[in-house]
């Protein structure tokens, strides 16, 4: 029997007070990109967020898990100070350094009807690993 080819994607997982985000990808970088879409999906439907403007993000951390929370926290910070939402991400990871571009637009309360504000990416359920099927997975709980 032929196994389906694993693809990149994202999902949420339950945390009683908050929301877990999980990204899958063929590389760690792609899993980070997908998890970032999951982060936006905590707030609004990413399909409603136009990729009109871009910002650059860089992070540097001692290990992959810390790099992941740093990445999501950098996005949370950019969302907060620029009043933006993001829907498209291009992540490059070399050694312990992450360089990324995020595309999005200004928050429009009428159109985006944002349900919550992401306060921070936490260490709860934090995992970054390559699974047996070769697909990378990156996840943690977001405090909202």
């Amino acid at each position: 029997m032929k196994h389906p080819v694993p693809t990149a994607g994202w999902e949420h997982f339950a945390h009683v007070a908050d929301m877990g985000v999980r990204g899958f990808g063929h590389t760690m970088a792609e899993a980070f990109e997908q998890a970032a879409i999951a982060l936006t999906a905590v707030i609004t439907d990413p399909a409603c967020v136009r990729a009109d403007a871009s910002i650059e993000v860089t992070c540097d951390a001692a290990n992959a898990e810390l790099l992941f929370t740093d990445w999501l926290n950098a996005l949370i910070y950019e969302m907060a100070v620029r009043k933006m939402l993001f829907s498209k991400f291009d992540v490059d990871i070399k050694d312990s350094k992450l360089k990324a571009t995020a595309w999005g637009e200004q928050i429009d309360q009428q159109r985006h009807t944002p349900s919550v504000e992401a306060k921070g990416a936490t260490f709860t359920e934090l995992k970054v690993k390559q699974q047996e099927n070769g697909i990378w997975m990156a996840q943690c709980v977001i405090d909202v």
Binding site: L66, T69, A80, V81, K119, G120, F123, D143
Partner: peptide
């Protein structure tokens, strides 16, 4: 946002 950012930064430093 101020409290959220302080929590995020010090959680990282303390860990």
């Amino acid at each position: 946002g101020l409290g959220h950012q302080i929590g995020t930064e010090f959680l990282r430093s303390m860990a």
